[in-house]
Design a protein around this nucleic acid. Structure first.
Lengths: 358, 358
DNA sequence: AAGCTAACTGAAAACGTTTATCAATTAAAT
DNA sequence: ATTTAATTGATAAACGTTTTCAGTTAGCTT
């Protein structure tokens, strides 16, 4: 019933071994100044014993635990993995630890995790919600807990949000394809739970349940770029689907079935782009000669460099989230941060052959 | 200095509000039987307050914290992300939380994380080392802590290891390529720190620093399959490199520079396979007509389905690690687990054109 | 209704730390 | 040598739990 056999040294042991009083030891661990001779004695014993004050005991006394929580929808998705990487790196550099939960895209599991977290020893929480804005689960659990929301905007009033400029991303991607002479640009939107038909996507932009999805912001940028170029919006060029390879395959099939002369594609993820490309090739299209592809996401150092993409600085996003959270933990003011995006041109960008230009 | 403002209910408050003694409350939370009348009173107050016992206070008293640690070399690599997913899922299902650290491939950082973890409230640790076997850092820190090593074998005596059968994977991959009529099979080995020239790879199989790398096990399977097929081993078909896309590109260039008539390739990761494929195409090779590619890794549900691969059941590996760790935490015996691998044939497998058969 | 168990209960001590108090010590500055 | 300021240690009270132990209650049996 008590499997936690610590058998560790306690501050009492260290006091006895070093001949320095418990009070002074505590002062030492809390950064107050100490007589050099005592400091030497303490360091010696610490080296020998490897003693560290118990986080749990300090936490009980109101001391910060140095543990922050992170809730991601899916740790296997590079998008979130990169954010997690940034969170862990920044946390580590601040001497903090990260308690990490993956909600596997399910609001139920998200609730479960929040429930567990709330009885834990967190100093604060970085939260990437799956849930729609209107039913964020059990936020009451966190009334007293510093909270930062990442990769989403406008979810909870009064809480700092760290997100990138999705509208600008959609705009840059579209403008880039236009600059390659491609005017028939498909937009493959991805949602966790395909929430609407394409028509809805345009008509329901203001519904909060949909607004919270990054696809929508990018879509707005897409619309702006088209408008600027004087190209009328054609809803047939929009496909609403999911995040996976199979969804890319599906999107290619759907677009083909609509008999569109599509020569540019914007995909939300690498997997969708891969699926689309594979299927389009099966249909006999050449990539990038016939169709140029731009994707978002997760193309930091280690990923695949063949696709042109909108870089989202996801590691930075994770780091910035921790910095913001730590401001809150220290009782300071904190505010929203919108990170810039950048276009990275790679092999899947190619100017449309002049013969095909309209 | 005390930013942790809990202002939460404590068991004392609940005792006062419910009129039930602290001791009885504690018993209730620990699953002992309670007078039904008291149970009713308690439940009522719990509903009203949302109170949960503090993990930290329980931990001080020797109660398990329900927190396990996980150290991965790189959370952005799908290989480790999938293991992490399995760990988190199994942990969640057992009501446990996961304290997660990414060592970013650095032994230094790994040490730092272990150091921080050791003063924390862990019940146990799942550890995927970057370090070579001989200098696992500060394992002494964990003398009393249940420990499981994952995705590696033969690292620390007396500690359970959960790993897959890399030799069998290499064997299956090679045999598959042979069955397609391809006899000039390149093996692109990946190491965190390219530790040796190709020649070394064969000659140093027994050096523990190298044995711990999964590339080597797979390589042994490769050798076995070649031998079985009566094909002499040619070290020129081996390239030793890293895990990234750029390393795949490099490997293709190296193989080309050796003027080998290579018609099959085994890559350790998706990124390497992608890089190799991209570069090989630039050189004018057709994939898979001219060169069939098999890779390892990270191809569970959400990944790219175009490459033939050896499935490693990484989520299962994570889950199994938690199960094993929990056996240790409960004071039971635990042992090594070797997980099976499977060949999944996809589009990059194609029989060699008969004209090209030797 | 009394007696006898067995099941349950509450007061208080303990866990490893922090903090406050206050008298006592030390070091530095004159 | 004296004053002043900085640091020290013993003690005790917290923090939110668990655990021990002696005492109480409820459910049986007669």
């Amino acid at each position: 019933m008590a499997p936690n056999e610590k058998a560790q040294y306690s501050i009492k042991d260290i006091s006895r071994l070093s001949g320095v009083s418990i009070a002074t030891l505590s002062r030492y661990f809390n950064g107050q100044s100490i007589r050099p001779s005592n400091e030497r004695k303490i360091k010696k014993i610490l080296d020998e014993t490897g003693y560290r004050p118990s986080i749990a005991a300090r936490f009980i006394k109101g001391h910060a635990s140095g543990v922050i929580g992170l809730i991601v929808p899916d740790i296997t998705h590079p998008f979130f993995a990169l954010i997690a990487e940034g969170v862990m790196r920044e946390a580590r550099e601040n001497g903090q630890l990260v308690l990490c939960g993956s909600s596997e895209g399910s609001v139920e599991i998200e609730k479960q995790i929040i429930d567990r977290f709330s009885q834990s020893i967190l100093d604060g929480l970085i939260y990437i919600p799956v849930a729609k804005a209107e039913n964020i689960p059990a936020i009451e659990s966190f009334r007293n807990l510093p909270l930062v929301i990442t990769a989403r905007k406008d979810i909870i009033r009064g809480v700092p949000h760290i997100y990138h400029d999705g509208e600008e991303g959609g705009y840059l991607a579209t403008k880039h394809l236009l600059s390659l002479g491609r005017r028939n640009i498909a937009f493959i939107a991805s949602f966790w739970d395909s929430p609407c038909s394409n028509k809805d996507l345009l008509e329901n932009l203001d519904r909060p349940s949909i607004r919270s999805r990054s696809s929508v912001d990018r879509f707005l940028g897409y619309l702006r770029a088209l408008k600027e170029a004087g190209i009328p919006y054609n809803p047939d060029f929009v496909v609403v689907t999911g995040y996976g390879h199979n969804h890319g395959v599906e999107a290619a099939s759907i677009l083909k079935s609509r008999f569109l002369n599509c020569n540019g594609v914007i995909a939300m993820t690498q997997a969708v782009a891969n699926g689309f490309t594979a299927q389009a090739k099966r249909f006999g299209y050449r990539i990038p000669e016939d169709i140029s592809v731009v994707l978002f996401d997760a193309n930091e150092s280690k990923a695949d460099y063949t696709f042109t993409y909108i870089e989202l600085h996801l590691v930075t996003m994770g780091q910035e989230s921790v910095r913001t959270l730590n401001r809150l933990i220290e009782g300071k003011e904190a505010h929203d941060t919108r990170l810039d995006v950048e276009l990275r041109v790679k092999e899947t960008s190619m100017a449309l052959h002049p013969a095909d230009q309209p």
